[in-house]
Design a protein around this nucleic acid. Structure first.
Length: 120
DNA sequence: CGGCTGACGACCT
DNA sequence: GAGGTCGCCAGCC
């Protein structure tokens, strides 16, 4: 079973604990820059919770527009959002709108240089 | 308390 | 590059 709002409704995942910490961290990523699930996890002090960072973003409600979730990609510099393809397309368009080039394969061009240092 | 599920990552073939 | 395996652990039944 994939993620569903039925089980992980906004009022259940937003607010307490982990998810909210992830959102606060993502909000620090400036326009034109990107970060990774692993970096966010490391910034939270738990390298191993990268998967949960992804899960937290998957559970991000539509009304949390202040959280730039589209700037979060995986450690290999690729877009990995699911949301049934449409979400991935939206992420791509938002990145391009910020001046970030994305290859046909979904890889962020010059990923290493656009990668935002969360610890700075 | 036990089991399940992953927007991941490191590593291997 | 393209697949597969395994470890990780918070939040939800």
């Amino acid at each position: 079973m994939p993620y569903s709002l039925e089980r992980h409704g906004p009022d259940r995942v937003v607010g307490p604990g982990f998810h909210e910490q992830v959102y606060e961290l993502v909000k620090r990523v400036p326009s034109g820059k990107v970060t990774t699930y692993g970096d966010l996890a490391a910034a939270l002090g738990l390298r191993s919770v990268a998967r949960h960072v992804g899960f937290a973003l998957a559970a991000l409600p539509e009304d949390r527009a202040e959280v730039p979730w589209h700037r979060v990609i995986n450690g290999r510099g690729r877009l990995s959002s699911r949301g049934g393809g449409a979400q991935s397309t939206r992420q791509r368009q938002r990145l391009v709108a910020e001046g970030i080039a994305v290859s046909p394969h979904g890889r962020v061009v010059d990923f290493a240089e656009l990668r935002f240092d969360l610890t700075s």
